[in-house]
Design a binder for these strands. Sequence first.
DNA 1: ACACAGTACGACCGATCGTGCTATCTTGTC
DNA 2: GACAAGATAGCACGATCGGTCGTACTGTGT
Lengths: 209, 209
Amino acid sequence: MTTTGNATRRTRTDGERTKRHILETAVRLATIEGLDGLSIGKLASATGVSKSGVYAHFDSKEDLQLATVETARTLFVDDVVLPAFEADGLKRLIALCESFLSYVENRTLPGGCFFAAAAAELGGRPGPLRERVAENQRDWIGVLTEAAEAAKDKGQLRTDTDVATLVFELNALVIAANTGFILHDDPAIIDQARTAIARVLSATRPNAD
Amino acid sequence: MTTTGNATRRTRTDGERTKRHILETAVRLATIEGLDGLSIGKLASATGVSKSGVYAHFDSKEDLQLATVETARTLFVDDVVLPAFEADGLKRLIALCESFLSYVENRTLPGGCFFAAAAAELGGRPGPLRERVAENQRDWIGVLTEAAEAAKDKGQLRTDTDVATLVFELNALVIAANTGFILHDDPAIIDQARTAIARVLSATRPNAD
DNA sequence: ACACAGTACGACCGATCGTGCTATCTTGTC
DNA sequence: GACAAGATAGCACGATCGGTCGTACTGTGT
């Protein structure tokens, strides 16, 4: 879009930097105000850029929202998924849950997990925005599932483990931790989730009982 | 507010009926648009009442939102909690989860559980509205906890059962079912939650393994 | 030197927002 | 039937919404 197609042609960096700044602010704002509540005006004054300056980078509000979702995705991948990929098998599965919980606990984003907020907000409203959010959620489930399958193959989980149900449970626990933590401002909820996760996983360890 | 202080004066019923109609519509609308996205104008055209006709019943938008939360609470109590109270102990605990899942699956409200949506929306925004939602969520956890305690006392759960963690897990599972169902429009997710709930409960039955 | 693409601005549009104020019906009480 | 009060509509307000102008500054390529 912004490239001219000419290989020798260099792109000025100012615009890209402003755009990134706008989008990073948009992600943070959207976790509090929602993707819909995030208005161009508020985003403009939050970034110090004029309203039309903001608008210059996007075709429409929906375009801005889609770009915000994409930015939130890369942030999630960098902060939650990739760090956990340094481990393998069961350790990776545990690391994924744990890094999600820290990502919430550390208030990386002021309103907690971006996708949890977006899923709740857009759930009942079909459209390209909801589709992108749903896709990202499926990807996250996919990452958890792959890790669980690998752990099972390694013999770190019972051979009769129902991976889909296990992953459903783990995801439910971390999301509930997110919602509870944000709603009640209580870090104890995160620890409750840690306890629950440990319990669920210990129930599926190979020589349990 | 609406009473004049004169004891002999009776109130006309029309207003109350209209108000109830407005609030019931508001609850449904809020599960899709959010409590903030719900505007007086949209609510007016959805009910067939004029904008000022809607406004006549409330002091401010926040007042309307608080009344909407209260209406959603009674609806939740009537549809989810009370039916389950016909059973006792472990059966009640199971009935609570199941009636919550049906309440979501039957699309009693178009956008799923009102409080799940409200919690996600208001989580990062302190204020009386969030406080009321948080209170209702605590009450729900309380109902689950009482049922679990009773089941434990009856010997239907292991004596070493950590009730708080068990309740956290059950709540997480039904909320995740709600979010997933609304986001992906897939009833299979409700069944996945049923499977997970059965597994969690079977792991805490007295003579397991 | 000059044209042009990229970047950002202020002004403005019609629509809708929440919120008042007033007029007009309707209804129960005397 | 008069009258007070409840219920609702009509209308208008300032603010903000998403979105479109025209414009001006700044580098880069020819």
